[in-house]
């Protein structure tokens, strides 16, 4: 089904989903921690918007609730908690640049194509308008993981993790019209608890090793190595 045949609301869903993907790239390459948190908040807001529009376009009232929940949790509460955390950890001005941003970005582009390739058979089988978004959401998940691989700063890793969750949620909304309400509430609760746990952990890590650079955790391995950079 080509884009030109879709009603305007459904086109809007695609546009929003594409911007969610773009924000994943922004998260990946953003050097300033505070800006990355803002990008994450925007991503959450956009996922909520996608949910809202899908609800409006597909007449699925239970999605309105999901949208509200996502907005409250992903766009407001968690970013606010992260903000507070960075302030408590005195990381407001923290910047961190990737080793080779171009290569990482290219890897992310490759992941986008890869996820498209993965979901192609599914796209051909299904015929709902949101089907193409599955590729986008899978890419968001993979890029979140990529971000966790390449970022050394713990808060940035949490952002990667949370954006993976955004991707999963997007997939759920677009492929099946959202998860059952119970599951959704559970997941939301899990994410919240994870966030609280992360916060506690950070304070602890910070106290014990005086840094939030996860590469410093390499010291904790069993066999001693010559340099700290070698992971196990």
């Amino acid at each position: 089904m080509s884009l030109t045949l879709l009603p305007l609301l459904q086109q809007l869903v695609l546009v929003l989903a594409a911007i969610v993907l773009f924000l994943s790239f922004v998260l990946l390459a953003q050097t300033r921690l505070i800006s990355a948190i803002h990008a994450f908040a925007w991503q959450g807001g956009l996922v909520a918007a996608v949910t809202l529009v899908v609800a409006a376009a597909g007449q699925m009232p239970h999605l309105y609730f999901s949208a509200a929940l996502t907005l409250a949790l992903k766009a407001l509460l968690i970013p606010w908690m992260l903000h507070r955390l960075t302030r408590r950890l005195k990381l407001e001005r923290h910047t961190e640049s990737l080793q080779s941003p171009t290569l990482v970005t290219m890897a992310a582009v490759a992941l986008v194509i890869f996820s498209y390739w993965l979901v192609l058979p599914m796209i051909q089988a299904e015929l709902t308008f949101t089907r193409n978004i599955v590729a986008v959401s899978l890419a968001v998940v993979l890029i979140g993981l990529l971000m966790m691989v390449f970022r050394t700063q713990a808060v940035a890793q949490v952002l990667g993790f949370m954006s993976m969750e955004n991707g999963l949620f997007l997939a759920a909304v677009s492929a099946t019209g959202g998860m059952p309400l119970v599951v959704e509430l559970g997941v939301a609760f899990d994410v919240l608890v994870a966030m609280v746990l992360f916060g506690v952990f950070f304070l602890q890590i910070r106290e014990s090793i005086d840094s939030l650079d996860v590469d410093r955790l390499n010291r904790l391995r069993e066999t001693p190595g010559e340099t700290g950079a070698e992971g196990q």
Partner: peptide, 22 residues
């Protein structure tokens, strides 16, 4: 300019992924 290239590239990809019927 990398950002510009990335935007253009995403434009192409989203054209292929989202806009063309499979």
């Amino acid at each position: 300019l990398n950002l510009a290239l990335l935007l253009s590239l995403l434009g192409l990809l989203s054209h292929v992924i989202l806009e063309v019927g499979a």
